[in-house]
Write a protein that binds this DNA or RNA. Sequence first.
DNA 1: ATTTAATTTAACCAGATGGTCAAAAGTACT
DNA 2: AGTACTTTTGACCATCTGGTTAAATTAAAT
Lengths: 204, 204
Amino acid sequence: MNKTNTEENIIQAAEYEFIERGFEGARMQAIADKAGINKALLHYYFRSKQKLFEVIFKNAFKLFIPRILNVFEREDINFFEKIEAFVENYLNILAKHPHIPGFIIHELANNPSSIVKIVQEIAPDLSPIKQQIEAEVSKGTIRNIRSEHLILNVLSMSIFPIVASPIATMILFNGDKKQYATLLSERKNHVSDFIIQSIKNPNL
Amino acid sequence: MNKTNTEENIIQAAEYEFIERGFEGARMQAIADKAGINKALLHYYFRSKQKLFEVIFKNAFKLFIPRILNVFEREDINFFEKIEAFVENYLNILAKHPHIPGFIIHELANNPSSIVKIVQEIAPDLSPIKQQIEAEVSKGTIRNIRSEHLILNVLSMSIFPIVASPIATMILFNGDKKQYATLLSERKNHVSDFIIQSIKNPNL
DNA sequence: ATTTAATTTAACCAGATGGTCAAAAGTACT
DNA sequence: AGTACTTTTGACCATCTGGTTAAATTAAAT
């Protein structure tokens, strides 16, 4: 076993454990077992549970501040197409990592300074997007809307149905997961349609 | 100290502890301290951490399946006004209990059967609302939309900004909580506007 | 082959945690 | 005042948990 392999094994195991159970629920022993190593080796590579957690959290968070925002820097498509592209992209990422948003939200709920720091470091700068929205409002392509609301609406309709899927499945489909999965797949088109329908200037 | 008082004290303390820290993070000792009693008394009233948790979870969940749904049974207002009334009501409840939705979502993430059972018992029946949406589509007052999507959109835009407030505050306003609070207060009008704008039939 | 450094393990430890128990304190009833 | 029942407590326990240490194994360098 060389160092690189073990370290990677640990990270994968820790990722699963932390994201599935949260910091408090995660067990160092479980991570060691899943990585096929001794618990002491865990502390040899990452000094403490806290340190290991921070590595995992950082990785997870990075996944969700994607280059996807770059969509809004493209000049070959218009604003509505950018929204479509963004939503589709984001929903794809969410489908691949459905447990990460809930994980991030939960761990951030109590605002432990260690994590807040990480978020601040990595957090993306949305001001270009804000400006772009404001520009569209000025141009009159979309009706008057505060940029923050629009951003929040897009993120809400994309992320929430994933984060709250257990309850949503029960309430909407009496627990039928297949039906809910179908609904989710429909949302790749639905969400952007719904948004564009709402913001587009009806006079054009 | 009479029984009623102690029991109520425990429940209040447990509510705070569980909702703030989650089942795994909650400590029986902390609950006992906060209730001003002995830890053994906790087990005298509620046999185990699990049992106590279930009581708290049930209470919390009940708060969010409100009679508010009754809004949709009113006959004195039209569909759009119902949406407005619902959103305003729901956002008020959320403002009063901002930590409960995240709590419910997190505890349900791993689908422990004990909790799933509770949810199934209490979960509201949305079929009247679904039918109402479909009726509006037939009437042509709103454009064609699948009822589940509309419901999910309303809930998403209402709940997500509260659940994800720590990150949202950082990303949108660099951590300025006052600005975010202002934004949230604006949403009582914004969310229903945004929705109605999206679904209303433009030909009418 | 021998020394040196890195990797891995088994055995332990201290503190925390949920939970128990027998006795004490309180209450109600006669 | 005495009995019976409920409520409350302090002391205690078994187990779990993150973390440590010293020794063993393996790999790298000379």
